[in-house]
């Protein structure tokens, strides 16, 4: 099974850690998408659970990789080639100033808006991309309130391509396709 957790609000961490670990232990491919990785710094995900951000996934889109090469990798390579000997310090300072003053602004104010206008479904596609090799996403787990709008946008975008994974608010509330619900659980004798 291939499962995506949306945990952008980081407000239900215990559930996300517990459920992702359980899925991983059962052999599922699990990706947890968070807003800021630093919000999860003190949390330990189970081995094999991939934690990423929407920004990281979006940055894998080819136009964005080209932009990154143009804005960052080419200038860095140039500085490495040219900035030798006595020019080294000046070249590095110049590169830093360029990246902070120009490249970052161009990225934020020009490339990102243009990218989203030209490829409005890129984010939705890139979120799905890691699952493509093994047959696609099976289950989307929406894990907190702030993830709800993003989940709806992703589902809308995927629906246009006919992709409809199961959705749930937690692993315990998922009903696998074709599963009968007749099984009766009981905690008689439990708390």
């Amino acid at each position: 099974m291939q499962v995506l957790f949306l945990a952008l609000g980081a407000s239900r961490k215990r559930a996300v850690l517990d459920e992702s670990a359980e899925l991983r232990a059962s052999g599922a491919q699990v990706i947890v998408v968070v807003d800021k990785k630093k919000s999860w710094l003190n949390q330990e995900f189970a081995p094999g659970v991939v934690v990423t951000t929407l920004k990281e996934l979006e940055a894998r889109h080819l136009p964005r990789r080209m932009e990154h090469a143009l804005l960052y990798r080419v200038p860095r390579a140039t500085v490495r080639a040219v900035g030798r000997g006595p020019l080294r310090g000046r070249a590095r300072r110049g590169l830093k100033a360029y990246e902070r003053g120009l490249a970052a602004k161009l990225h934020r104010k020009v490339f990102v808006p243009a990218h989203r206008r030209l490829w409005p479904d890129a984010q939705a596609r890139m979120v799905l991309a890691p699952f493509a090799a093994r047959g696609g996403l099976d289950l989307l787990v929406v894990s907190d309130a702030l993830s709800v709008p993003r989940a709806v946008r992703l589902l809308d975008a995927w629906a246009t391509d006919g992709i409809k994974p199961r959705v749930c608010y937690g692993l315990d509330y998922d009903v696998p396709s074709g599963t009968q619900q007749a099984r009766t659980a009981t905690t008689q004798g439990q708390r």
Binding site: V148, V152, L155, C168, Y169, Y173, V175, R183, T186
Partner: peptide, 18 residues
């Protein structure tokens, strides 16, 4: 957004006592 999501995400599952 949750009004749109709930019909997709809410399904009954078994719990205690049947």
């Amino acid at each position: 957004a949750n009004r749109k999501l709930a019909p997709l995400a809410v399904r009954p599952v078994p719990t205690v006592g049947g």
